[in-house]
């Protein structure tokens, strides 16, 4: 996304707004949510291994969502920001290898996901250019609600990445982020640390 923005050009010297709000869209990549086998204890005369009645292989599909941020510049090149995002991912479970030949089926479940958190941004370029690369890192709380808000998976997430900001006017700018989010509390059948790629495009308004 950063490459599509174009070549940076010097801008006239001006004071950047200290505060900014932004809204945008977010894309989060898919992740494997675990696999399991429905097994039965074998009769010793029929075999030593458990009989596999069927297998279940789960993924949370990639999804789009909405993101909102509030940023505050705290130094010449450093900003802090609070962020919230929302999306509706689908947990997909592939059911296959049925012992009695039931047709392979994909069973879905709609999730609701939101996260709140904060980040620290450090500008990597000089202040007078319209195009400014940055690096960012932060943490937050990711919460995933299952169908009907019945089950809940939630926990800390950590993220790190970078991107570019492109100033359109003295108050308006575009921003593109690419980052990796890490969490060990996502909706899944086996709990382990997972890494989710995220790409965010947003429009910021200086206050």
């Amino acid at each position: 996304m950063a490459a599509a923005v174009g070549v940076s050009t010097p801008a006239s010297a001006q004071t950047e707004p200290r505060f900014a709000v932004s809204v945008g869209v977010l894309w989060t990549g898919t992740y494997g949510a675990g696999a399991a086998q429905a097994t039965e204890t074998s009769n010793p005369t029929a075999g030593a291994s458990p009989l596999i009645l069927f297998t279940a292989d789960a993924r949370v599909r990639e999804r789009a969502g909405a993101v909102a941020r509030f940023s505050a510049r705290v130094g010449r090149r450093v900003s802090v920001e609070a962020e919230g995002h929302f999306s509706r991912p689908v947990l997909s479970v592939r059911l296959s290898h049925d012992f009695e030949a039931a047709a392979d089926t994909t069973a879905d479940e709609q999730l609701t996901e939101y996260a709140v958190g904060g980040s620290v941004l450090v500008d990597a370029g000089a202040g007078a250019h319209r195009l400014r690369p940055f690096v960012a890192a932060g943490a937050g709380y990711l919460r995933q609600l299952q169908d009907g808000n019945i089950g809940v998976d939630g926990g800390m997430e950590w993220h790190a990445g970078g991107g570019v900001r492109y100033r359109l006017t003295s108050r308006l700018s575009l921003r593109a982020d690419a980052r990796l989010l890490s969490t060990n509390k996502s909706a899944a059948f086996e709990m382990k640390r997972r890494y989710l790629p995220q790409v965010i495009g947003s429009l910021a308004f200086g206050l």
Binding site: V93, D98, E100, A101, A102, A103, T105, A107, D147
Partner: peptide, 11 residues
């Protein structure tokens, strides 16, 4: 024929 339910059921 044996068949699966096509949704995950959240208990």
């Amino acid at each position: 024929k044996p068949a699966f339910y096509n949704r995950v059921v959240v208990v």
